[in-house]
Amino acid sequence: MSDGTFLLSLSGQIDYISILAGAGSSWHCKYEFVAGPDWKIVGGLEAGLSQTANVVSNGEDIVLNLPIDIVYKSTNLHGWPQIVLSVYSGINLQGYGRSHIPLQPGLHKLNISLSKPQPSSFLGYLGTFFGYQPELLQPKMLASTAGNNLIQMMSSGEVYVTINNVFQGLNILGYDIGRVN
């Protein structure tokens, strides 16, 4: 790429959610990509929603097998893409997770920890007895380094994601990403 841009192509899937899941619950997962201002999507979807996966026996992993395919173009490594996941059981939020897309080419198995916000007021605390679960208005805020100081969160569960990524034109621009493990 002679115009100072490089390409990042990633493809993979959200394999499964590993969380305390009771029999009879049904789960879904939303993913969205967040990247810096210089990053443009050349192909693929920025966000997606999985199918509803039902849990038959207690404690089993919730397989989603949701494909992810996206191609980015950028001039600057700053604002490297991140994936933000929101996991729901029925309509109740069970956790948010985020992770950077791996910065090295090849196959990567990520396990992304989930955490859910805790109520910050007494009323909110009372609400938890009635099944109320606080949610973030914009889960994308988790991907910003600006900080989310006052949010209290409780971590629970993990999402397993497989990602293959390929770069094009990084070395020509003088970048050295190091030895690939």
Binding site: G36, R98, Q118, L142, A143, S144, T145, A146, Q152, S155
Partner: peptide, 27 residues
């Protein structure tokens, strides 16, 4: 050149162990 040089994570606790998973991005 760009990016934040300081910040603060959210307050995290863990349900089952003593491992607080902030997963806070730095760029």
């Amino acid at each position: 050149i760009s990016g934040r040089k300081e910040g603060q994570t959210q307050v995290e606790s863990s349900e089952f162990d003593d491992n607080c998973k902030w997963c806070f991005p730095i760029d």
